[in-house]
Design a protein around this nucleic acid. Structure first.
Lengths: 194, 194
DNA sequence: GACTCCATGTAATCAGTTACATGATTAG
DNA sequence: CTAATCATGTAACTGATTACATGGAGTC
């Protein structure tokens, strides 16, 4: 249910084609809400049917077309309502911690492999999130700059601060996961030796 | 896809009816992989059809029956295979951090409400996880004790250590979320004042 | 002419949520 | 006899994944 709002957040800054939107998406909000294009295109159609956005076919070359979407007032209202409503929380459903709870049934080798993979996984995420923060700090984030062009100077500081804040949370989470898995490796070592 | 393994992990210790399984589930693995009974009953039927478990109807009172499931060799093999296979990782899809990334579009009041709710949410989770750790430490966890009865004494230490380790990870995660949201409240205060 | 990028989908399937639905047993 | 708990589902729907499918535009 959040996908539509993630899309609205991007479209809010200015009209985009499905393709361009999807690219913007994967480089920005996609870090915090993943969606493949096969989900985005139908979702845009659905949102158009509901009146949240409006699409127009534009000519492209001789025969090609592309559909450019812009936000409607209803879309703006829905976005605002989402911002005021309490956030949804999903019930925990965590494959990694599930596995961890039954690590005693694994061989030490498999336990180590699992924990190393966990570290690798979260180091990948960490690098992504950290990269975003670096882009924010150096003002080299194209998506943020596009956004800032459309926000009054007085509110730019706020926009930057909150964007950074969101990514800081993700960075911290990634670090905790890595530290936890590292303690896990030590635990495997102790139990394996003793 | 992990649900079946969570169910197998419980069934592995001994046969249970769907109802008892579901209760054991919600008090143990359910903390790390939520599933309502409306998902568990059909899943058990499905696993039976696939030969991972075997169910038998037992009489209960005069007319009532209940279906008691036990694990098959195929189920045991599937469980072992899961333990050796690399863990699945889901793509990030985090409503709270998505909201956080667009907090500049909220009013300060809505931003505060969101962050307070985030803290409340994770304090609830934290209490649950911490409660589990306390039960492990005081050996008052019925589910863990049931499990330990069926594990050779030499391996009990391992079982306890890994169980605790899994919950420690969840506790740390909850604490990070709370700390992050608290920093968020300070940030709202600073931006609101300045 | 081949390759890359632009551009947009559909179809099948699976996993999970919500709501509805039913009835039997047991303890007070 | 009434309430709690035991016991088990189905149905409709939403959201997400995977795979398949197509074709134009620009460039080397």
């Amino acid at each position: 249910m959040s996908l539509r709002f993630a899309l609205l957040a991007i479209l809010r800054v200015g009209p985009l084609s499905g393709y361009d939107l999807q690219k913007q998406f994967s480089q920005s909000v996609g870090h915090v809400w993943h969606a493949p294009d096969s989900q985005i295109y139908p979702q845009l159609r659905k949102m158009e049917a509901e009146g949240l956005i409006q699409g127009e076919d534009q000519a492209r070359g001789e025969r090609g077309t592309r559909r450019v979407y812009h936000m409607t007032d209803a879309g703006e209202a829905a976005y605002k309502a989402w911002l005021e409503a309490p956030a949804e929380y999903q019930r925990v459903r965590d494959p990694a911690h599930l596995r961890a709870a039954y690590l005693e049934n694994s061989t030490p080798a498999a336990a180590r492999a699992f924990l190393h993979a966990h570290i690798a996984q979260w180091e990948g995420e960490l690098a992504q999130f950290q990269g975003q923060i670096d882009q924010i700090d150096t003002m080299t984030s194209t998506m943020l700059n596009r956004r800032l062009e459309h926000t009054p100077p007085a509110e730019r500081e706020r926009a930057i601060a909150y964007k950074r804040f969101a990514y800081e949370g993700l960075v911290e989470r990634a670090k905790v996961e890595i530290a936890w898995a590292q303690r896990g490796l030590e635990l495997v070592g102790r139990l394996d030796a003793g």
